[in-house]
Design a protein around this nucleic acid. Structure first.
Length: 202
DNA sequence: CACGGGATCGTCT
DNA sequence: GACGATCCCGTGT
């Protein structure tokens, strides 16, 4: 079942990031249905988190999407090359977000391979925030897309697996945010223990 | 597997 | 004008 607004419009964001492990990210882009089980996430908090793009109420053309209602896609370009997919959470006006960092391919593998220019479904197909976005057709063109509108091209589904995996989640510091000072130490990265599809980043 | 460097451009200072 | 919530490829072990 599609996750509804009520799932995303909660706090704390760390809890949502944890519960998203095991959920199924689905896209229907250019007529191609792809699905991947979320195995790695990171939480970014509006308050008390220097790593968050919108910390201290920072409001710019880029971050404005984070202030939208929970369940809105926040997609931005990183390093000029990679499209990173996040979901805004919490009430409209509170810019919390969860970054999706790794998925296990479930459906539409041929489409994913084609988009990635690969012939075999090895780890680098969808393990990592930039590569999973490419595999699933997610680009900044979908920034601001509402995941909760029936018929939307992007949605997250609960097939009952997530709840069974909550005891198999590990946590650690987030990746690539040294600029955040001591907030870089917060253990706000979550992953499914032992998953092959976790991003290789340390 | 570890590492080092280059790619590439929107965003903010 | 500087810098990324990254990835890939080459080289070395």
């Amino acid at each position: 079942m599609r996750l509804e607004r009520a799932f995303f419009e909660r706090s704390p964001v760390t809890q949502i990031a944890r519960e998203l492990i095991g959920m199924v990210l689905c896209t229907e882009i250019e007529g191609q249905l792809t699905k991947g089980r979320i195995v790695e996430t990171e939480a970014y908090a509006a308050v008390g988190d220097r790593a968050c793009h919108a910390h201290l109420g920072r409001f710019t053309r880029r971050t404005r999407t984070m202030y939208e209602a929970g369940g809105t896609a926040y997609i931005y370009l990183c390093y000029g090359i990679h499209h990173l997919f996040n979901v805004a959470v919490n009430q409209k006006g509170v810019p919390d977000a969860v970054l999706i960092r790794g998925v296990e391919p479930l459906h539409g593998v041929e489409t994913m391979l084609e988009r990635r220019g690969m012939v075999k479904a090895e780890r680098r197909l969808t393990a990592g925030p930039g590569v999973l976005s490419q595999a699933m057709g997610l680009t900044t063109a979908f920034n601001g897309h509402d995941l909760c509108t029936p018929g939307s091209q992007i949605r997250i589904e609960d097939d009952g697996v997530s709840a069974q995996l909550q005891d198999a989640i590990e946590t650690g510091p987030r990746v690539g945010i040294d600029y955040a000072g001591e907030d870089a130490l917060l253990p706000w990265r979550y992953w499914l223990s032992g998953s092959k599809w976790k991003s290789p980043a340390k």
